[in-house]
Design a protein around this nucleic acid. Structure first.
Lengths: 297, 297
DNA sequence: AACACGTCATTAATTATCCTAATAGTGGTA
DNA sequence: TACCACTATTAGGATAATTAATGACGTGTT
C-alpha cells in the first residue's frame, strides 16, 4: 500500500476524473485506473461509482477520501518536521573540550568561524578529559578537544598542536626569578600534581623519572585552575602547559619559567567518531580549529 | 513511499534491530536493510545510528518514528471505518415505492425476508412515481417499486405482477349493486381521475377512448387514497387497481365492481440501475418480492 | 433512437522494483 | 586479537508497475 496511490485516489476524487487525476500525478490514465482498482481490491470495497459521469465516490469512498486527506497531510507534516530537524542538526556543532583548552580556543576561533557560517550553531561543553571521550563515543558531541588524545577503534584523532610545558611557581619561590630551570633542580621540591589517572600526570611522572628526579607531591587535582590556586598560596610548584598560564604570566601573579625537560610537551588533539562521515559544518569547524591563529606567537 | 516500509521502520526501531524488524514483517534482513536505506534516501535523512549496538534512532529518526506510528494508526483506523461502513451499506436495502404498493407489499414480504436475513436493514420510502424513478437513478434507492415501469438506458425493469382494474363507486351509486359493468355504461359518468401526468391516467384514458367512452372528469389527484376519499363523498366513480381497494371492498365502505375493459391492467414492476451488480442482500430482497404470497387469491 | 465524443477498463509487452541467498564488513566482547 | 552477532552489499530472478493501443460504456446531440 503506497502513499502515491492514496494521493492519486484523492486527486481522482477531487478532480472527479481518472484522467485528470492521472495527469495531476504525471502517470497514464491506465496506471491510475489499475492503481485504484488494486486499491479497491486491497480494501475489498467499492470506492468510486464509475457508472456516472462525472464519476462520484460512493459513501464509503467519500469517507475514505476524507481519511486519506488527513493521512497525507500527516505524512507531509512528518516530512516537513524531518527536514526542519535535519536543518537544525546539520547546522550544529557540538563540541566537548577539556577545561584548559575549551574557552581559550573557542574565543580565538569562534569569531572567524561564525563570520564564515553565520547560520551555524556551536555548542561548547567543558568536561573532565574522560568525559570528553565519553561524550564523543556516546554521540553527545560531534568533536572532542583534549590533551593526550588516544586513537581507538571507535575514535579518530587529528593532532592540533604541541604545548610546551613550563615550571610554574609562586612569585616568592626560590626558582621564581630564574631565566630557566633544569629538571634536576626540582629534586625534592614540593609539587602540586594532576590526579594520577590523568594522562598529563603520567607524562610528567615519566619525564621526571627519566631524569632521575623525585618530587614531593603535596596535592593532586584534576584540573589546571585548581593547581594554579594551590601554587598561588605557595603550596608547591608544578609543571603546566604554557598556554594555560599565559594570563598569570603576564600579570605576574605566578612565576612561569621555561623548563629543560626534553620531550615533555602536552599534545592537544581533536577526536571524532571513526567512520562517521562528518556534516559539512562540523568539517569546516575542524578546519577552523586547525588554522594557525593570527595573534599566536 | 509505501506503508509497509513505514511499518518495517517502526518495527526496526521498536525492536532495536534490523533482523528482528525484518522477521516481524516476514522479510529477509537484506530486504529490511535495503528498504530503510531507500527510505532514508527518499527522506534525505539519517534515521538510524547503525554504528552502535543495539542500533539507535537519531534524533530525527525518533521524531520520524513517532510520526510514523501516528500515521500507521490513522491508516488502520481508516481501514476499520471502511470495513464498518461496508458492512453497514451491504446489509441495507433502500426501497423506493409508490404509495399504493409501498406499505401493502412491504407488510406481506418483510416478515419472511427478515426471518431469512435477520441482520439486514430495510429502508422504505414512499414517493410519487416520478420521484421513485429519480431516487433509483440518483442512487438514493437500490430498488424502486412502481406501476407502469419503463425501461430506459439506465434502468432495468423486473415485472412483478398485473393488477386488474375495477370500477369503484360510492355504495349508494347506481352502479354499486351490479355484478359487473361494461365500459359503455360509464358514458358521461362523473369521474374522479388520476393526474394527467401519471402513466395510469394515460392508460385509463386510452382504454376508455378505445371503447368510445367519454367520462366527465370532476376531480384529479396524484394518489389512490385521495381518490378513494373523493368517491367516499360520492363525487364520482373511478377505475382503480383492485389490490388498492381490498380493504374498502371487504368493509363495504366502497362498492367495487369488475369492469369489462379488455387490456386494462396496472403492471407493477421493480426497477434498478442497469449494469450495477446488486449486493447479495438486495438480490435476495428482490427474489422475496417476486415470490407469490401465501395468502394471495 | 442512432450517432459521436469523451471517459474508463482491459490487454500485452516493457520496464522498474523488490526480494532472497550468499558474502563482505563492522561493532561489541572474551 | 579473535570471535560472535549483526548489518551492508551484491547479483540474480521474481514480482509489480507502467505504458500504448484497444475495447466498452455513459452522455449529450441530432
Amino acid at each position: 500500500m503506497n502513499l502515491e496511490t492514496l494521493k492519486l485516489y484523492c486527486d481522482v476524487v477531487r478532480l472527479r476524473s481518472f484522467s485528470r487525476g492521472a495527469a495531476a500525478n504525471t502517470v497514464s490514465q491506465s496506471a491510475a485506473s489499475q492503481a485504484i482498482q488494486q486499491l479497491e481490491a486491497e480494501l475489498d470495497a467499492v470506492l468510486l461509482d464509475r457508472s456516472r459521469r462525472p464519476l462520484l465516490p460512493t459513501e464509503q469512498g467519500q469517507a475514505f477520501y476524507d481519511s486519506c486527506r488527513t493521512l497525507l497531510q500527516g505524512w507531509e507534516k512528518a516530512r516537513a518536521e524531518l527536514a526542519a530537524a535535519r536543518e537544525r542538526v546539520e547546522g550544529t556543532v557540538r563540541v566537548a573540550a577539556i577545561y584548559s583548552v575549551g574557552l581559550h580556543d573557542m574565543s580565538r576561533h569562534m569569531q572567524p568561524f561564525m563570520a564564515a557560517y553565520p547560520q551555524a550553531r556551536v555548542l561548547l561543553e567543558c568536561l573532565h578529559p574522560h568525559k570528553v571521550v565519553e561524550a564523543v563515543l556516546e554521540d553527545e558531541a560531534d568533536v572532542g578537544i583534549l590533551s593526550y588524545p588516544a586513537a581507538t577503534r571507535a575514535l579518530t584523532v587529528l593532532p592540533l598542536r604541541m604545548e610546551p610545558m613550563v615550571l610554574v611557581a609562586h612569585p616568592a619561590h626560590r626558582l621564581a626569578r630564574r631565566r630557566s630551570v633544569a629538571a634536576s633542580e626540582l629534586q625534592g621540591e614540593k609539587f602540586v600534581a594532576f590526579d594520577r589517572d590523568l594522562a598529563i600526570r603520567k607524562a610528567i611522572d615519566r619525564a621526571l623519572k627519566q631524569h632521575g628526579v623525585r618530587v614531593e607531591v603535596v596535592m593532586e587535582f584534576d584540573n589546571v585552575e585548581t593547581i594554579k590556586q594551590a601554587i598561588g598560596i605557595n603550596a608547591g610548584v608544578s609543571i603546566l602547559p604554557r598556554p594555560t598560564v599565559l594570563n598569570e604570566s603576564g600579570m605576574r601573579t605566578l612565576a612561569v619559567t621555561p623548563l629543560t625537560l626534553p620531550g615533555l610537551v602536552r599534545p592537544i588533539g581533536i577526536i571524532h567518531r571513526r567512520g562517521r562521515r562528518l556534516t559539512p559544518v562540523v568539517a569546516r569547524f575542524i578546519e577552523q580549529l586547525q588554522k594557525p591563529v593570527d595573534g599566536a606567537p
